[in-house]
C-alpha cells in the first residue's frame, strides 16, 4: 500500500506519489496561480510538505491521497496568489481550461462571484459578505447553491 510505504519513507513510493499526482495537481495550481515559477515552487512545497506530514493523512478526514494533496495545494497556492487588488476574478477564467472553469460556466452570476472569491482567492464568508456588502447568511446560501451545482456537475460528468 502506497501510504504505508510513504510513512516509512520509501523513496520509490515518494517518486510514485509525485509521478501519479503531480500532473493533476499542477493543472489545479496554474488555475490559481498562473505564473510558471510560482506554480513550480508550489508543487515542490506541496510534495515536500506531503513527505514530511504523510502520517497526518489518516486523521485528516480525507479518504484519498489526491483529495488530501489537493486541499494542501490550494492552501499553498492561495498564499502565493496575487494580492486581491491585482485580480478581478475574470482573468483567472481566461488562463487555463480546467474542471473548475468548466463548472463555473454552469453557475449564475452571483454564485460565480461568490465561488471565485471563496475558492480562487480563499476569502472567508465574513470577508466576502463585507466585500460585497451583503449579509453573511446570503453569502452562505449562494455558496451552498454553488456547492449543490458542483455536486450535480461532478455526478453528471464523472459518475
Amino acid at each position: 500500500m502506497l501510504i504505508e510505504r510513504l510513512v516509512i519513507g520509501d523513496p520509490a513510493a515518494r517518486e510514485l506519489l509525485y509521478d501519479r499526482y503531480a500532473g493533476a495537481l499542477y493543472s489545479m495550481v496554474i488555475q490559481l496561480v498562473p505564473m510558471k515559477n510560482k506554480a513550480n515552487d508550489i508543487i515542490v512545497s506541496v510534495f515536500t510538505w506531503a513527505f514530511h506530514h504523510i502520517e497526518t493523512f489518516s486523521t485528516s478526514g480525507y479518504c484519498t491521497l489526491f483529495a488530501w494533496l489537493m486541499r494542501k495545494t490550494r492552501e499553498f497556492a492561495i498564499k502565493e496568489a496575487l494580492p486581491e487588488t491585482a485580480l478581478t476574478g475574470t482573468e483567472l477564467m481566461e488562463r487555463e481550461e480546467g474542471i473548475l472553469q468548466q463548472f463555473c460556466l454552469e453557475l449564475t452570476a452571483d454564485e460565480l462571484q461568490v465561488f471565485r472569491l471563496s475558492y480562487f482567492k480563499g476569502l472567508s464568508i465574513t470577508t466576502i459578505a463585507r466585500l460585497l456588502a451583503v449579509p453573511e447568511g446570503q453569502i452562505n446560501e449562494t455558496l451552498g447553491a454553488a456547492m449543490k451545482a458542483f455536486r450535480k456537475f461532478l455526478k453528471d460528468t464523472w459518475n
Binding site: 493533476a24 499542477y26 513550480n40 508543487i43 479518504c63 489526491f66 483529495a67 459518475n159
Partner: peptide, 26 residues
C-alpha cells in the same frame, strides 16, 4: 465517492510540471 469523482475529473486534463520540478522534489 466525491473524492474519486474529483480525482477522475482532475486526471482528465493533467498538466505535467516541467522536469526540473521533479528533479527539485526528488
Amino acid at each position: 465517492l466525491v473524492e474519486r469523482r474529483l480525482e477522475r475529473a482532475a486526471f482528465d486534463e493533467p498538466a505535467m510540471p516541467p522536469m526540473e520540478v521533479r528533479d527539485r522534489v526528488l
